[in-house]
Design a protein around this nucleic acid. Structure first.
Lengths: 270, 270
DNA sequence: GATAATGTCTAACATGGATTAGCTTCTGAG
DNA sequence: CTCAGAAGCTAATCCATGTTAGACATTATC
């Protein structure tokens, strides 16, 4: 099996993923879906077949635009992407960050037209999956259920982001976003102890939280001086997770990751 | 068929729904799903069977709480409800308004535990649907696809709300919410010309948009003095839809309602 | 039809975050 | 290795929205 799946999950330049890849046995997609579903070896082979048409895309390039009607589905293999909407005045709101194992547009073949765009954040590897292949996969009940679960978690994350933007102040919101990305990255095996690649600019963080990059900078300065985090060159280190979680009012229940699976996950550093 | 489905969609006290009910041939659920899906008479009968256990619930009562693990699904039959999350400091963020035809928790049997609560806004009628009955329905491919579509639209609405809260100012956000609710109510046949029941307090509107009720009041005053809307006693009248839509930057594409169906819908006043 | 509870509206004042502008540091292309 | 563009950082000022408080209006209850 090892030879048939991509083994490198380089998203940034920091090289943590490279180290991790040497130890990872599952692709991020399999790791993520196994959070809840029990997959057979056959299921995994089907999932790995999704990677057959994986293409490299440079940083800050559109994967898909508002108004597009693609006939295939995109899956993040390596790197980060962002779902976003543009306003008439040019302002941008990011509504999701996509990391390896995330589908960009599982829905588009049903909804018809894209109501938002998706852009890469870093240089990425993206799998292009024909609609027919996707439909064949979902004829396996175990996978259909796993995809359904994944969609529902995406929805839960959206609700959480509304709370973040609507009712948390800037400090809490940034902290909450960091906690969420830490847990999600950990769940796919891309966290090295208390560090992970967070290849976002302060402007991108601001666009996700409804803040300006100036204000994100102020908040990050404060988090550093409070000795909660380090964040340099796309590498984030959490110095005191419990305190950060508390300061941000973060409760991971909405990610629906069960303890059972978290324990058994083969993750670097745990 | 008429005798087997509820014909009264009273949500507020204003009585528009009563008038409409006399003309409506479809339940809101059927009207909504037919936005995109083609349903057979048999499909409709199956959908109408969902109403067999419809219960009255008073205003501002919890339908379901965070942490619950219900074994049945809730469907709004009459009235309004709100999906919400509470913060440690007691602040509330509403993440969705549920109107007739909306499922409250289509997902909960897969996700396990509720990560948010749902409360009625008005006195409501809510159908309780056993998990098994729901699963039987989704064995019909046409209905499975229709529910899937509905879930994806809910997701698109969540994305739109993030933009609303994150990047629009208070005036635009309130206008955008009004436009969305107008279109959604119209789609299920509950709009009378330029008027519809909007049984929300200014505080509830604020909790949905991340604003205080004081500021919502300021915005509503301005909308009234700009002659865009009237809003009294839970009845909202839009005086100039085009201008409101433009002022709010509203583009209904994310609701994925196709022109074709909008034309053929049997709606009062159109 | 009195009364309490809830919702609406207004005003004075406070503030978190936006805006603008410019300097500094990092990064990647060649 | 160099250089240009991108990203990070900081400061001064401003303003949209929050806070607090209370009067007024509407609705629900008995």
């Amino acid at each position: 099996m090892a030879a048939t799946v991509p083994m490198l999950y380089l998203s940034g330049m920091a090289g943590i993923q490279q180290q991790l890849a040497d130890r990872a046995f599952d692709t991020p997609l399999v790791a993520k879906l196994e959070t809840r579903a029990r997959l057979t070896e056959e299921d995994r082979e089907h999932l790995n077949s999704l990677y057959s048409d994986a293409r490299d895309i440079g940083a800050r390039r559109n994967i898909i635009r508002e108004g597009d009607r693609p006939d295939h589905v995109h899956l993040m293999v390596e790197g980060w992407a962002a779902r976003y909407k543009l306003l008439p005045d040019g302002a941008r709101q990011i509504t999701a960050f996509l990391i390896p194992g995330d589908f960009c547009d599982l829905h588009v073949t049903i909804l018809g037209e894209m109501d938002h765009g998706i852009t890469t954040v870093t240089r990425s590897k993206v799998a292009f999956i024909p609609r027919a292949q996707m439909e064949a996969l979902t004829e396996r009940p175990s996978l259909a259920k796993a995809f359904w679960w994944s969609t529902l978690v995406d929805e839960a994350i959206l609700r959480s982001w509304i709370v973040n933007v609507g009712r948390r102040d800037a400090f809490e919101a940034v902290g909450h976003l960091i906690c969420e990305l830490y847990v999600r990255m950990k769940n796919i095996g891309l966290v090295d102890g208390d560090r992970f690649d967070l290849p976002l600019t302060q402007e991108e963080i601001g666009d996700a939280l409804g803040l300006t990059s100036v204000h994100v900078n102020r908040v990050l300065q404060r988090m550093r001086s409070d000795d909660l985090i380090s964040f340099r060159q796309g590498l984030l280190t959490i110095h005191d997770y419990r305190r950060l979680e508390k300061a941000a009012g973060f409760n991971p229940n909405y990610l629906h990751i069960e303890r059972r699976n978290e324990r058994s996950r083969r993750t670097y550093g745990t």
